[in-house]
Amino acid sequence: MNAASTTPEWLHVHRGNAPLVVSFPHTGTRIPEELAERFVSPWLALRDADWWVHALYGFARELGATTVRSTISRSVIDLNRDPSGTSLYPGQNTTGLCPLTTFDNQPLYRAGAEPDAEEIARRRDTWFTPYHDALAAEIARLRQIHPVVVVYDAHSIRSRIPHLFDGELPQFNLGTAGPSGAPDTSCDNALADVVDNLCAMSGMGHVRNGRFKGGWITRHYSDIPGGVHTLQMELACRGYMDEPAQVDETNWPTEYDVARATPLRDTLQQVLRACLQFASRRDP
């Protein structure tokens, strides 16, 4: 069922009763009219969206999952960044709470039109806070029903972005807020192990806590003693859409490719079912 009518129109909340929340903070493609002229171009402001990810996980509702999705572009405000502005990846190239550049390090704003501290605070109040209020409320609601809840943060990114990482990204990038090869910190190792194994069995290429270890959502909402286990899945876009060697305004984004997405979607269905099984069988 849908959330109450008090939810902002840009925020889509579907309430299920299974012990699983799927978050979509980066699938939005809306630029508020009052901000549009400040960006270099509408296309550049939308290029780094997590294209079609909410469609890829369309089966989540059928599993009884709750979904929380923003339709506002991440270029306006990134809902998966620390609201204080602190970098989640110190020493690595990344983008901030209100990004000033694209993933390819191109300026997003016209000269002099960048958001100042007052504007960033306004955007936090307008979009960041309502999204996280809704996400926190859904987690709390489900914890009243279930002793354990899994929060699954769903993302995607182009396979090759030299400014952010070397070479081609693996298809599945599982983030549990732990150093590579070290114990997971945002969820029980048993949950991370089964998800990791399912990705490995797909034969598509996978990594655990590689370049993407989980953003602010994964790190902030984790409360293992309190029964909340979190993880992030960053997918390479090539698994469900065509990726041109060089993207530009004439060829990106490409359409969601149902046939290409089928093997990826099959694995993701197994992953979400595994999350449900873990939560159903686990005591906090």
Score class of each variant (00 low, 15 high):
residue 39 F to L: 00
residue 67 T to E: 09
residue 55 A to E: 15
residue 33 E to A: 15
residue 46 L to I: 06
residue 63 L to H: 08
residue 60 A to P: 08
residue 65 A to R: 06
residue 76 V to E: 02
residue 58 G to R: 14
residue 37 E to N: 14
residue 69 R to Q: 15
residue 62 E to L: 06
residue 33 E to V: 10
residue 72 I to V: 14
residue 44 L to F: 00
residue 32 P to C: 06
residue 51 W to F: 13
residue 42 P to V: 03
residue 53 V to D: 06
residue 27 T to N: 10
residue 50 D to E: 04
residue 47 R to G: 02
residue 42 P to W: 00
residue 45 A to F: 01
residue 35 L to T: 00
residue 35 L to S: 02
residue 69 R to P: 07
residue 74 R to V: 01
residue 32 P to T: 02
residue 73 S to Q: 09
residue 54 H to C: 13
residue 65 A to Q: 08
residue 43 W to R: 10
residue 55 A to K: 15
residue 67 T to Q: 08
residue 59 F to Y: 14
residue 51 W to S: 08
residue 47 R to F: 01
residue 77 I to A: 03
residue 68 V to E: 07
residue 41 S to I: 00
residue 55 A to W: 13
residue 65 A to I: 01
residue 56 L to T: 05
residue 33 E to T: 12
residue 72 I to H: 02
residue 24 F to C: 08
residue 71 T to M: 09
residue 52 W to I: 01
residue 28 G to D: 01
residue 19 P to R: 10
residue 68 V to G: 04
residue 64 G to E: 12
residue 40 V to T: 12
residue 47 R to W: 06
residue 78 D to Y: 11
residue 37 E to C: 08
residue 58 G to D: 15
residue 61 R to T: 13
residue 44 L to G: 12
residue 79 L to Y: 05
residue 24 F to L: 05
residue 54 H to L: 06
residue 46 L to R: 13
residue 31 I to S: 00
residue 33 E to C: 03
residue 51 W to M: 04
residue 29 T to C: 13
residue 69 R to W: 00
residue 72 I to E: 03
residue 20 L to E: 08
residue 52 W to F: 15
residue 27 T to S: 15
residue 43 W to V: 02
residue 26 H to D: 11
residue 43 W to T: 05
residue 19 P to S: 09
residue 41 S to H: 04
residue 54 H to D: 15
residue 25 P to F: 09
residue 20 L to Q: 08
residue 72 I to D: 02
residue 51 W to K: 09
residue 63 L to R: 11
residue 34 E to M: 04
residue 57 Y to M: 11
residue 39 F to H: 06
residue 45 A to L: 00
residue 55 A to F: 09
residue 49 A to V: 04
residue 41 S to V: 00
residue 38 R to S: 12
residue 54 H to S: 15
residue 48 D to W: 02
residue 31 I to K: 00
residue 50 D to C: 06
residue 26 H to V: 01
residue 59 F to R: 02
residue 36 A to P: 01
residue 58 G to L: 05
residue 60 A to D: 11
residue 69 R to T: 14
residue 55 A to P: 05
